[in-house]
Write a protein that binds this DNA or RNA. Structure first.
Lengths: 136, 136
DNA sequence: ATAATTGCAAATGCTTTGCTTGTGA
DNA sequence: TCACAAGCAAAGCATTTGCAATTAT
């Protein structure tokens, strides 16, 4: 539960500096989907002289190493989260910006079928639902 | 088949200038998903002094009027297409950038169900498949 | 030791905007 | 006529990058 990203980086041979460890730790401790500014704010509380350029470089590095995921939801800047063992998609509350994760095996399967039918092998996908809360 | 966007604009009360008519016409005649630069190139062939700022303003206007759709596919700039009566999603060829449109009612229905289950009314969604061609 | 990383500020790429002149209904 | 649109160049915003100083292995 503590610093999974750091462990994954070691496994992947990603060189770990003080700044990278810090970003890894902060991301591992986050349960939301922070953007780079927010991440920079959070790490700055611990190391006040870390540069935002370093945060940018680090999330990019982590993304390329496959340990964090980048999301470009509609109308917002890029947000990041630790990759989890089980794949999930997102529902974004259009009123609050809140992000809810969900898993739907059936949709997942259908996507592969659609691609296949079109003569393609599915290598990636993006599914985002945008909704407003139903009050009851 | 000729200039559907222009007609829709009239219906929606969007003021039509020479430049807007031209962008509308070029988009209606396009069967692909051009970005603003490409659109600007195409309209420039007809009116060489149209500004790219006008193209930007026009696609935004058309988008807000609901007559064209904007797509921010992964790793590319914004692309536009005329809205069609039947909704469709996209499969992007990761090798060539080619975009294939598809419709899948089943996935569509499941998305609504997922949202509902989470207590949300679906107001929008985004489904993109990224694939590589299967050679046979 | 030395190849890689950092911080800073400048540069980038896409998109928007202020302002003056031009124009559609 | 006259509120709105176009063209131009400048500004904005998120992100990337060149370079000199610093650091991890």
């Amino acid at each position: 539960m503590s610093n999974l990203i750091e462990n994954k980086c070691i496994k992947k041979g990603v060189r770990l500096t003080g700044q990278r460890k810090l970003v890894a730790r902060v991301m591992s401790e986050s349960n939301d989907h922070p953007d780079v500014d927010e991440l920079h704010k959070r790490v700055s509380k611990i190391d006040s002289k870390i540069s935002i350029a370093t945060v940018y470089r680090t999330v990019k590095l982590f993304e390329e190493a496959g340990v964090v995921a980048k999301h470009d939801f509609k109308g917002t800047k890029a947000r990041y989260e630790e990759v989890s063992e089980e794949h999930h998609d997102h529902l974004i509350d259009v009123n609050t910006g809140e992000i809810i994760e969900f898993v739907n095996e059936e949709i997942e399967k259908l996507q592969g079928k659609v691609a296949e039918k079109l003569g393609y092998k599915l290598v990636d996908h993006r599914l985002e639902l945008y909704g407003s809360k139903i009050k009851k």
